[in-house]
């Protein structure tokens, strides 16, 4: 690992200031992606700004029809939260399936969302549950947030402070779990809000995306058969040593159907 300078941020304003005055800074949340990246020398920041000591960035609250998860809340805390379990069990399940127990004790929602890893679980949750990503500067709708492979709408100097999930009538998340890493080869979140349905996919494309054709079909009839024959074009999907783009396209169909099956059972 190349060396770097290290700072503890006292609060958000301090972190924002340090982002401005350092040459090539990176924010450090749980470090479950950033530290392996640094070990592989795939990034070489001049300064790491650790957000861990900012108390105001941790915690979960239910506010009306929303579940608010602050950015530095770990996956383990989300998975074990009775509030999350009651309001959006699919979100608790999603968090409980990330990595392994030791990883869930450190990895954070803010870090995961900001990284926009194509195989991360949270992006499907953020997009499927119509969330709003709050930063120190503005609120960003999930539909506008994930913009590409490891790319988001975040601007330099912007810090995620919380993710605000809309509580659905019902939702389900399932993934084809990579047997070694636990990452989503394909993961699908299906959520219903009254007459509206959202189908969000992670793992398959360069970034999480919605499948409008499936949403339309499920809004007409919320049944597994509605999505069974909706094929996803493989053209824009990822193919790698784990599986081809065509196989991922097939998995999107399979997991969307299984989510609906689980919900109507």
């Amino acid at each position: 690992m190349h060396n770097f300078n290290y700072h503890h941020a006292a609060d958000i304003a301090d972190a924002a200031l340090k982002l401005k005055v350092t040459v090539e800074p990176k924010l450090l949340a749980g470090g479950m992606t950033l530290l392996p990246t640094l070990k592989n020398r795939l990034a070489q920041p001049s300064d790491l700004i650790d957000l861990a000591k900012i108390d105001g960035l941790k915690g979960i609250s239910v506010e009306g029809k929303e579940v608010v998860v602050k950015a530095m809340t770990t996956h383990a805390v989300v998975a074990a939260s009775t509030d999350v379990r009651k309001a959006i069990p699919a979100l608790a399940d999603l968090a409980d399936g990330i990595g392994d127990p030791a990883v869930r004790h450190r990895g954070t929602i803010g870090g995961s969302v900001a990284n926009s890893d194509p195989a991360a679980d949270y992006p499907a949750g953020v997009l499927g549950l119509d969330a709003v990503v709050e930063t120190n500067e503005r609120k960003i709708n999930a539909d506008d947030f994930f913009t590409g492979l490891f790319e988001t709408a975040l601007k330099p100097g912007e810090i995620i402070t919380a993710v605000r999930f809309k509580i659905p009538d019902r939702a389900h998340y399932m993934k084809f779990r990579h047997p070694a890493s636990g990452y989503a080869v394909v993961g699908v979140m299906v959520a219903q809000y009254g007459a509206k349905v959202r189908v969000a996919v992670t793992g398959a494309g360069p970034n999480a995306f919605r499948v409008r054709a499936m949403e339309d079909a499920l809004e007409k009839s919320f049944a597994p058969a509605s999505v069974a024959n909706i094929k996803i074009p493989a053209g824009d999907l990822l193919g790698d040593i784990h599986c081809s783009a065509e196989y991922r396209a097939h998995l999107v169909n399979v997991y969307a159907r299984r989510c609906v099956e689980a919900l109507v059972k």
Partner: peptide
């Protein structure tokens, strides 16, 4: 490399000493 940090299991190869 699993150890406990404030009573919780973590992987000490993926933490900085400063953390």
């Amino acid at each position: 490399c699993v150890i406990h940090v404030d009573g919780v299991a973590m992987k000490s190869c993926t933490m900085l000493a400063l953390q």
